[in-house]
């Protein structure tokens, strides 16, 4: 421990040292690793299949995973505070069921969508209150929410309900052309807009900075006079809202509601966030990292689809291995800093 804050630096040495510092920083290190990983995964895909690294494939990644991006955004808020949300998959399913059943009953899309967002946000609020006021561990509180949401799905209907509402069908079929043979869906636009809003909130508002502060040290945040309690509740509201929105996007994608949909999606969302460089203990991470995480998962899925012979279960195993690698990486990076 020296008091001199700057090591003597000269041109190249300083640049190299700087690169090393960035990679071993718990803040940027994992995100950079994720970015390199994404490039590697793409290179692997590109070297094996013609036309893998092409506009349509990349855009499809976004189209297929728009809802997961939205989920990952909400999960990022929660994990940044050191919590976890196990309910998101069930809440997605519940949202699809609410949408499908109400639309079937003749409600208009203009009412149904806001209603879903309100319901899921309120569910998040309840979870947040359990965590903050009653000091219940986040995984238990969100577990209760998961049971509740899944159970409500079954209460609504155990069968799949298809959606024929013209607004939903229109959104499902709309393609926004982007040049030659390439297009995206409105869901992608919504997901990207959400990512931008989340970035602004996390980096330019007191709410966002308090989220990071809670993840760093709740105690310190409180002593610094930050609104810790309120923020701790709000992250679950945000995650609930994102789960509802993801559910809506999911119905645009599948045009149906089904109770057993999105089982295990919470794990995908958590994995995307962790692979995206957010520390599971909170305090470090970026929304953009989580988007990268989703893209890594999506690319692996795409490769497996392209491969044909490689079966889908490899996705889960790959995700598990990546989780392990990133968790150990996080452990090493944070241990070095202690």
């Amino acid at each position: 421990m020296s008091v001199a804050p700057f090591p003597p630096a000269t041109g190249a040495g300083r640049v190299l040292g700087g690169i090393r510092d960035v990679f071993t920083s718990p803040k940027y290190g994992p995100v950079l690793v994720t970015f390199l990983l994404l490039i590697v995964v793409f290179a692997v895909g590109g070297s094996r299949y013609r036309g893998f690294v092409s506009g349509p494939v990349i855009l499809n990644l976004f189209v297929d995973n728009a809802y997961l991006i939205v989920l990952a955004v909400g999960m990022t808020f929660v994990i940044l505070t050191g919590g976890i949300d196990l309910s998101v998959g069930a809440v997605v399913a519940m949202s699809t069921m609410i949408a499908a059943s109400l639309l079937q009953a003749g409600w208009s899309a203009g009412v149904v969508i806001p209603l879903i967002l309100v319901v899921t946000s309120v569910l998040g609020l309840l979870v947040g209150l359990m965590v903050q006021v009653f000091k219940i561990q986040s995984f238990i509180a969100t577990l209760a929410a998961m049971f509740l949401a899944r159970g409500l799905c079954y209460v609504i209907s155990k069968d799949s309900i298809s959606i024929t509402d013209p607004f939903f069908v229109a959104l499902a079929q709309t393609k926004i052309p982007l040049g030659d043979r390439m297009s995206i869906t409105p869901s992608v636009v919504i997901a990207i807009a959400l990512v931008l809003v989340a970035m602004v909130v996390l980096h330019y508002t007191r709410l966002g900075r308090t989220v990071y502060a809670i993840g760093g040290s709740e105690q310190s945040g409180m002593l610094m006079g930050l609104p810790v309690a309120r923020t701790n509740v709000l992250v679950y509201v945000i995650s609930g809202f994102c789960s509802g929105l993801a559910g809506v996007l999911f119905t645009f994608y599948t045009l149906s509601g089904y109770s057993l949909t999105a089982v295990g999606t919470e794990l995908d969302a958590i994995a995307a966030v962790v692979i995206g460089g957010t520390l599971l203990t909170g305090g470090y991470g970026f929304v953009l990292g989580s988007v990268l995480g989703v893209l890594v998962l999506g690319t692996i899925q795409t490769i497996i689809t392209f491969e044909g012979t490689l079966s889908s279960w490899w996705t889960r195993i790959f995700i598990g291995v990546l989780l392990l690698v990133f968790i150990i990486l996080q452990k090493i990076l944070t241990a070095r800093r202690r």
Binding site: P26, K27, V200, Y204, T205, R206, R209, Y212, A213, G215, G216, S217, Q219, S220, G221, L223, M224, G225, L226, G283, Y284, R337
Partner: peptide, 23 residues
Amino acid sequence: NLLTNLSVGENIMLGREPRRFGL
């Protein structure tokens, strides 16, 4: 009682950062 996961400047100013248009 500071936050090692944030920058030095932010630790000094956290909770009373100058804001423009709410940001």
